[in-house]
Structures are given as structure tokens and as C-alpha cells.
Design a binder for these strands. Structure first.
Lengths: 213, 213
DNA sequence: TTGCCATGTTAGCGTCGCTAACTTGCATAA
DNA sequence: TTATGCAAGTTAGCGACGCTAACATGGCAA
């Protein structure tokens, strides 16, 4: 009874996909389960066994689709980077490319993503001990950063520095926004300054950094 | 033979302290072992069993001194915060209180601490799933932040804003410095912009933020 | 229809965090 | 000096986890 109830709870999400002995869509089911579990309890407390229970398969099954726990988390991380890229890219779209507003909107979207998906954010940027997780950042993270580089290039052009290397300024902005986001989701900011609005930090410091070219 | 060799390797650091059935100084030995192991392999891969092997005691012994693994890591985190406070406090000492140089020196020391102690840094700021780790930040982190608040207050005074709330400006600076440090130790900065000098980001953006009061 | 092989299963190993129950020996008081 | 109580060790063991080996199933292609 306990077992049955547990199983029905755990598998209902992907139950429809389960046809018989063979799951049929296990790779995707595991990814979804891992995404949900990581979002809920954090990357550190994520376990393969939990993901298996959610997918309704034995604990050995995932290894047909992922080399190990780290590989599954890597795949989840990739998706998270896609989400971040979409969020920042979409946020700056309504504004004129290269405008201060477009850049700030991207930064605020980065912050909002972190606040809305703190555990995903931790998964993306918290270095995993295994070096295998490096490619996550290399591939997906670079795409994210392209957004910013492009905006900064356009901004520099409007300020009479067309063709200048956007990297230094982009790194300054990224550092600021990433710092605000990290402190906001990891707790210390709330503890040191409760009620503080992290978005305002991006707004004000962002403008200062942009103005100082 | 394997066992003997392993034991002699693992315990030699604290061997002298081990007197007989009772260790005599286990709490301290565990703290040192945990500090070393965390610094070496990171907070996530730290295990109580490893610490026990280093201290030369059974795996049940630590629970006479620490409630659980989390409590031990919390204690290590406290010490790390003391180290950070000492580093930032010491770095600004040679400069005039309230000067831009003093503030930037503190920020650079923060960055250097992160680069020299990446795993300690992660332990301090990476939120542990258990809420118990909250007091770490509350007590030790607040002390760290006092340094900055004081410098910023003095700086504001030199700029004709004596008595103004230093918090907003302090948070902007902290966010910047923390962001640079996080990106530098977690890898992405090296990947996106290899050879970049993170200290320069603090220097330039810090000045811009300070100038924009 | 048959047989291959991708994708499941069960069983089990070693490790880990932690607890219970027992043991040791130092420190204190008679 | 001796007795003894309690702090601080020990061994044994539970349940969970990551992962592997060996076996089972059944969909698809020849």
C-alpha cells in the first residue's frame, strides 16, 4: 500500500509514456524528472534514485542513456543555459539595439532568471568537481554571452567607439549582474540588507559602468 | 599492508596529537582535516569518513564533537569568514580610510582570497540545502561587511555626503567584487575571455561606481 | 517468422551519514 | 590511594546512494 501509493505519486507525471517493459521515452522522462528535482531541492541533493522513482524505472535503467549522474546533470545544465539565453535575448528585444535600456533589460532578465530558478542557476555556475562539466559552460554559456557582446558592440558604436573590442566592458557588466544575482539567491544580500532591491543595483551601477567608457 | 600504509599516510598529520584510546584533541584535528580536504576537493566531495581517516579515528567519533557533517562544515565556514575579514581588513589598512584606494584594495583582497581559496569561497557562499547553515553568514559575514560599510561611510563623507546611508553604495561595490570573484573561480570567465585580468574589472568598474554618487 | 540488440530488470558491491550499545581511561572526590 | 562517573572513544549495523554485471524482454529488420 505504501509502495503502491508512492509509485502512483512518483510516476504519474510520466506514467502515460510508460508502455510496458520498455519505457519508450526514458531519456526524456529522466531529463524532466531531473529538471524538476533539481529545481526543487538543488543540484547537490539530487539523486539518480529519485529520478528513477519519478520515471517509474529501476535504478539501473538511467545508465543506458547517461554515462553517470554527472552526465544527466550536464544535460539539464545545457537546457538551463538555453533558458537563460532566451530570457536575456527576449528582454532586450523591445529596445533599440545598443541602447542603455537594452543592455540593462538583459541584465535584469539575468537577475530575474536567477531569482526564478535559483537551483538551476547554481547548477549552471557552481563548478562541478568533475572536469567533465566544463563543456556545459563552453558551449551553452558562450551563446548566452554573445547576446551581451553584441549589445555592447552596438553601444560602443553609438558612443563613437565603433570597432572597439567590446569584451572589457561586457565583462564588467557581466560581473556586476552575476554578482547581484549570486548574492541575491544565495542569501547574504537579504541578510545584510533586508528589503533591498537587487534590480536597482543593476540599474544604477550598470549606468555608471556604461557611462565610464 | 595496504591498510597499514593507508593509515600511516592518512594519520601522520595529526599523529602526534593521538595519545591512546582517546585522541585528546579530536575536535581541532577534525577541523583541520576538514579544512584541508575541503580546500583540496571542494565542499561537495568532502566526506566525514575522509576526515576520520585523516584524524585516525573511527567514523563514529566525530559525532561526539559535531552534530553532523553540516555542523562541521559550518565551523570550517566560520573560520573561512574570519580569514576573509582579515584579508580585506588588512588590505585597506595602508591606505587612508575612506579613500578610493582603500576601498579598491579591499575589493582586490576579496578577489585574491577567492582565487587563493576557491573551495573555501564556495563553502562560504554556496547555499547549503539545510537552513542550519544560515547562521554562518549571519554572524561571520556581517562582520566582513562592516569593513566595507565603514570605508564607504568615510568615502561618502569626503564627497560631501556625511551621514548618508552607506548601504546602497556598499551593496553595489560588493555585488561587483563578488561577481568578479565568482566568475573567476567558477571558470566561465576564463572560458569566455582567457587571459583576462579580473583585478582590472574591479579597478575600473569600482572607480566608475564610486564616482557616480 | 525469426532472431538481434536496444533497453529494460534484478542482484549486489563498496561507500557514505548516522545511531545504538559497549568500552576505556582521565579527573575528581572519598 | 583508591573508587567511580562521565567524556570520549570503539564496533556493528541500518538504509540510501552510485554504479556494474548478468540476465530478460520485446520491437524491428531481414
Amino acid at each position: 500500500m505504501t509502495d503502491m501509493q508512492q509509485e502512483s505519486d512518483a510516476t504519474k507525471q510520466t506514467q502515460q509514456a510508460r508502455r510496458g517493459y520498455h519505457h519508450g521515452n526514458l531519456r526524456e522522462a529522466l531529463l524532466e524528472a531531473a529538471e524538476a528535482l533539481i529545481a526543487e531541492r538543488g543540484p547537490d541533493s539530487f539523486t539518480m534514485a529519485d529520478a528513477c522513482r519519478h520515471a517509474g524505472v529501476s535504478t539501473a535503467a538511467p545508465y543506458r542513456h547517461f554515462e553517470d549522474r554527472n552526465a544527466l546533470m550536464e544535460a539539464v545544465g545545457m537546457r538551463a543555459f538555453d533558458g537563460l539565453a532566451a530570457a536575456t535575448g527576449g528582454a532586450k528585444a523591445p529596445f533599440e539595439e545598443g541602447s542603455v535600456e537594452a543592455i540593462l533589460a538583459g541584465g535584469k532578465a539575468y537577475l530575474r532568471f536567477a531569482l526564478d530558478n535559483p537551483e538551476r542557476f547554481r547548477l549552471m555556475f557552481g563548478r562541478n568537481p568533475d572536469l567533465k562539466s566544463r563543456p556545459i559552460v563552453e558551449l551553452a554559456g558562450r551563446a548566452c554571452f554573445q547576446n551581451l557582446l553584441q549589445s555592447v558592440s552596438a553601444y560602443l558604436a553609438t558612443r563613437g567607439h565603433a570597432g572597439a573590442d567590446p569584451m572589457p566592458l561586457a565583462l564588467r557588466l557581466w560581473s556586476l549582474v552575476h554578482g547581484v544575482s549570486s548574492l541575491a539567491i544565495d542569501g547574504p544580500m537579504d541578510i545584510i540588507a533586508p528589503g533591498n532591491d537587487p534590480e536597482a543595483i543593476i540599474e544604477e551601477s550598470g549606468r555608471a559602468i556604461l557611462a565610464a567608457v
